[in-house]
Amino acid sequence: MALKRKTLYTALYILMLAAMVWALMPIVWMVLSSVKTQVNMFSMPPKFFFTPTFITYREMFGEGGNFGEFLSNSVIVSLATTVLSVVLGLMGGFALARGNFKRENNISSWIISTRMAPIPAVILPLYLMFAKAGLIGTTVGLIFAYTTFNLPFALWMMATFFKDVPVDLEEAAMIDGCSKFEAFRRIAVPTAAPGIVATAILCLMFSWNDFAFASVFSGRGTQTVPVAASLLISQHGIQWGQAMATGTIIIMPMVICGLAVRKYLVRGLSMGAVK
């Protein structure tokens, strides 16, 4: 019996190892390729051991490279939409969690459908509206566009977090003379703080990773990093070295953010359905 168990566990770990290779090999290969010279990059058979060089990164950020601009565009847009969505979502989510109103199910379905709406179907009317309003190619337009998925997400998540905050505390504060809004600000918000931070980080991740909206709505000077990545593909071929370096730059902060909110990841990715 003990022997059988041991074989089972060995098989289990071998399977897990295979799964890890499958999941991680592309990422490892991307990071490795980003620190290769052209020669090493295109040598066959593929090279796993070589002297790393940061020449690709230096080209991208150095003179003549405008990568810094893409980076700052990405940061500005992601932060702005996150702040906007979380502030509105905080108040709205609290109201959704505490209020008792008719058609609550309809409002919930509306919010979730907005969050999950196919991006092409959202881009189209926004494009026509933005064209009329002169918002194409502007940072403001892109911030609004990202809010189409971040606000419903923040609303929904904050509602599930506030539902976890016991209402008794707020009621006690209100008996002591606090207004409902004060009870929200002084009691509910601090109690739900970890959830608020997690929601904000997830909003950041969604907007940082977006490509479809940015490719349609951003113009010269407002393009984000994922758009920069796509620009490396041209009719004359693909600059693989820079593409892999750009990819590495895009995913590194997301891995850090994602692991930082690991505890809330399941909740965020399942839209609060699984806690």
Binding site: A23, L232, G247, I250, I251, C257
Partner: peptide, 19 residues
Amino acid sequence: LWMLPLFVAPVVAGLLWKY
């Protein structure tokens, strides 16, 4: 380790697999 691909932007996933 298994969940790392989740953090890869879809556009990067596309580029990476194309490579």
